[in-house]
Design a protein around this nucleic acid. Sequence first.
DNA 1: CAGTATTGTTGGACTCGATCCAGTATCACA
DNA 2: TGTGATACTGGATCGAGTCCAACAATACTG
Lengths: 204, 204
Amino acid sequence: MAVPRSGSVGRPRTSSRAVIEDAAAELFLENTYALTTIEQITQRAGVSRNTFFNYFGAKSDLLWVELDAAIDRLALELQSVPHDRPALEEVRAATLRVVADIGVDRVPLALTQDDVMGTTEETRVSGLVRLARRSDLIAGFLARQLHRASDDLLVLSAANALSGAISAAWTVWARDGIGRRPLAAYMSEAFDVVSTGLTVSLVE
Amino acid sequence: MAVPRSGSVGRPRTSSRAVIEDAAAELFLENTYALTTIEQITQRAGVSRNTFFNYFGAKSDLLWVELDAAIDRLALELQSVPHDRPALEEVRAATLRVVADIGVDRVPLALTQDDVMGTTEETRVSGLVRLARRSDLIAGFLARQLHRASDDLLVLSAANALSGAISAAWTVWARDGIGRRPLAAYMSEAFDVVSTGLTVSLVE
DNA sequence: CAGTATTGTTGGACTCGATCCAGTATCACA
DNA sequence: TGTGATACTGGATCGAGTCCAACAATACTG
């Protein structure tokens, strides 16, 4: 039974999605991620529990809204790269373009409140899912540019390495907190490490 | 309570652990991983449901017994490296030592039956947990050898890249199936990619 | 040998994320 | 007016994972 919420009839002025995200962000800060249930979130948001699953596939999706958006944009950027461009340079350029305008206000919830919320196993695992998705994306792109299969050992190794480096940049950037340099700076350093090769990068 | 979480070395042949593992392997092949419940596993193994959680922290642990053991051994290998040895070379050497005697009979369940069982999101996610654990391990080692913090951007980038490459080697090795070359060969190639640097490795 | 601690095992109750389905309200549009 | 699409809801169900109290068999100690 769809009972109209008090004071308003018809379509709410703000989307349920946004209301849920806000309620979740509040509760995560109040009670930590682990101790917050989906039921609590939807109660505060004023929607039913099932509505949550209309907008999110999992509770942990709430932690990675920003990162998911960034990966979406990376997918688009890579898609529009001409087939004859050098692979590595374009991955780097596309990544830097995507993160160029990401400021302090756009840190993924999971990373911002790493200390506040406590890093549960689940927050970490859900982050790894993003790493994997970005790996797939990059592998597909490398395969296309290099005319190799996307499950080729070279392609997979490189894609995983790149995605891992990008992940490291996000992590360290978020950890550095207020006053940190732009994300792109971290990203650039991380790319250098894997581009020039660990043999060179890791000299003591 | 004290439970050997990982490290399948030296367990008695008749332990509940082994019985559970065998029952699970059977059921995964019969009904796929996703459609097999812990209750079914423990029933076939002739133990109670709770006994399962005495030996495994999660259902997905059953998929990665071999890999977990390998990571355990990698931890030991890295631990015993003298502090003044070159970091990258030692990671490579330790990994190759660990992997040297891993034959076709030691493929992690998740990788062997990737096609049979269907790669669910959960099987993949649980694999990522191993990748992360290996990353942490390598990061700690690199930090020690290079006299840097273990959350340093260089260290983290390199560790993630290495762990990613190692993961790629496992994946491709397992997928190549019977007749494949030894795992160490794949591993060696994967290391080359990140060692010499992607700038060099990815030339068309 | 008796008593005691330790370890492995069990039953049972419980929480919560996630899926599924059927039903209802609202709106756009013809 | 009605028809379909979309958003939302209630309710049922599943299964992973946690917690706790109890109990048996073993090992340990005096």
